[in-house]
């Protein structure tokens, strides 16, 4: 049933090689040129343009990122220096106020001591004068008593 003439000599056969071969070769060469201008070139242009676009964008983004990082570091150092400066100012002000407070305290203390001393002296004076007066009165009184006793005898 499957009686085919494989090596059919003149007419037909599987290995019948004739002018189909060179014409097919020419057709394939022509197809190469047609596909090159119709398919490979235009699609290649579009794809390569896009690839370039994408890689350019990535490069740009990387540059921007590094710039941002630089700026961030810059700002951070600025922030740090500002912070330390602020700290310095605050501590200076604290010292100043501490000094002022101590001075005021000392002044008030010395004033209070002085007035206390004055009051004490005054009290002492008054006490001694009062005692003197008391002694004098007691003397007068005793004299009076003595006189009266002597006189009554």
């Amino acid at each position: 049933m499957l009686a085919f003439d494989f090596f059919g000599a003149t007419e037909g056969g599987l290995f019948d090689i004739n002018a189909t071969l060179p014409l097919m070769a020419i057709q394939v060469i022509a197809l190469t040129y047609i596909l090159n201008s119709l398919f490979f070139k235009p699609v290649g242009n579009v794809v390569e343009k896009r690839e370039k676009f994408v890689s350019n964008n990535i490069l740009e983004a990387k540059n921007k990122l590094s710039e941002v990082e630089k700026l961030e570091a810059d700002l951070l150092s600025q922030l740090q220096s500002a912070r330390s400066e602020a700290q310095k100012i605050v501590s200076e002000a604290e010292n100043e106020s501490d000094k002022l407070y101590k001075e005021a305290l000392e002044l008030a203390n010395s004033e209070a001591n002085a007035s206390k001393e004055k009051a004490r002296l005054e009290i002492e004076n008054q006490t001694s004068s009062a005692r003197d007066q008391l002694f004098k009165q007691a003397e007068d009184l005793s004299e009076l008593i003595v006189n009266r006793l002597i006189l009554e005898k």
């Binding site: 499957l2 494989f6 037909g12 019948d16 004739n18 189909t20 014409l23 097919m24």
Partner: peptide
């Protein structure tokens, strides 16, 4: 099945012969 193998549609142009079905 027998008829499929090794049969060609011949085109004769001048004195060259082509397998028409392939083209």
């Amino acid at each position: 099945a027998a008829l499929e193998v090794g049969q060609h549609l011949y085109w004769q142009i001048g004195n060259i012969r082509l397998h028409g079905q392939v083209f």
